[in-house]
Nucleic acid binder design. Structure first.
Length: 298
DNA sequence: GTTCTAGAAC
DNA sequence: GTTCTAGAAC
């Protein structure tokens, strides 16, 4: 039995994080005894065992070799500032986990996972993984699946995703018209079944330039009452034209056969904070959140 | 997408 | 002094 720890090279980190993602979701957890996600990135795994990462797209072979220095169990992240040479409680916990390590595994990348770190990062592929996890699925049919947004920006915030791999709005064409209409129907269904649908209003739409890969339709209640709503980008992405109504996407597909996103959408994210209910301008996020309480008392 | 943190704003 | 934002790293 051995323990994988985070090593110094970026590739190793990617591999370990990839493993954790999959193992955490239980996609292929053969012979895995324990997983500690976060501070003590610990994965027990048999030497030579092959794991398939992201639904068997990215196979790795796990090799093990002795660490002659014993120093290679360091767990500090590369971007850590030079001035911070004391151990935080978090670092101490990681070091404690590392001390349990007898051998240091080397992950040999046979697949594509490392490319994600070069193009947007592995995190941008997270939806592809979440949507496959039965525990996350609130609804599914032969065309789409619905999951809860991992960091909901309101009391109710779901994502409708097609099974078909469509990276973004840009990739949509007239052939997707029926699919996108179906996504809207399922979104409406989700709102109908919500116990708060009589007291809260909802909007359904797409972000002009989403961070996460794989087309996803946001279904979000308009209270924006959530600790995950933290900054101007969050706010403006749902309350300016950065948020493109599902019906507008359908109409664009029907009339032009494609979806056009206006230039300068990114600038919309920098607009002043403006209440979507009464258009009052607020100077800070905490002030905005306090103001929202007047529109949506608990 | 989130987290972290330097430094701006107060 | 504290609060808050914005940009970089992931």
């Amino acid at each position: 039995m051995s323990v994988i720890t985070y090593m110094s090279s970026t590739d190793s980190l990617t591999c370990v994080l990839s493993l954790i993602l999959v193992l955490k979701l239980g996609t292929n957890p053969t012979s895995v005894d324990s997983v500690v996600v976060g501070t003590g990135n610990e994965v027990r795994i048999k030497p030579g065992q092959r794991l398939h990462i992201v639904n068997q797209l990215y196979p790795y072979t796990i090799q093990f070799k002795e660490d002659p220095t014993g120093k290679n169990s360091g767990t500090k992240r590369p971007r850590e500032s030079a001035s911070d040479d004391r151990e935080s409680p978090r670092e101490a916990q990681k070091m404690k986990a590392a001390k349990l390590t007898e051998k240091v595994p080397v992950l040999v990348n046979h697949g594509e996972a490392q490319k994600h770190t070069e193009r947007g990062g592995l995190w941008s592929q997270g939806l592809k993984i979440s949507m496959q996890d039965p525990k996350m699925q609130l609804y599914k049919d032969d065309k789409v699946v619905v999951i809860k947004d991992k960091y909901p920006k309101a009391r109710h915030h779901w994502l409708v995703l097609p099974w078909q791999s469509i990276p973004s709005l840009k990739a949509l064409c007239e052939e997707h018209c029926d699919l996108v209409k179906h996504m809207q129907q399922v979104a409406d269904q989700m709102v109908q079944q919500c116990p708060d649908s009589s007291s809260l209003s909802f909007r359904t739409g797409y972000h002009a330039i989403p961070s996460m890969s794989h087309v996803h339709l946001h279904v979000i209640s308009q209270d924006f009452d959530s600790p995950c709503l933290k900054n101007k980008k969050h706010w403006n992405s749902f309350t300016t034209d950065y948020f493109i109504e599902s019906n507008d996407v359908i109409q664009m597909l029907e009339t032009n056969g494609r979806v056009t996103v206006k230039e300068g959408a990114t600038e919309l994210l920098k607009l002043p904070l403006c209440c979507h209910m009464c258009h009052k301008e607020l100077s800070t996020i905490p002030a905005l959140k306090e103001h929202l309480k007047s529109h949506f008392p608990r």
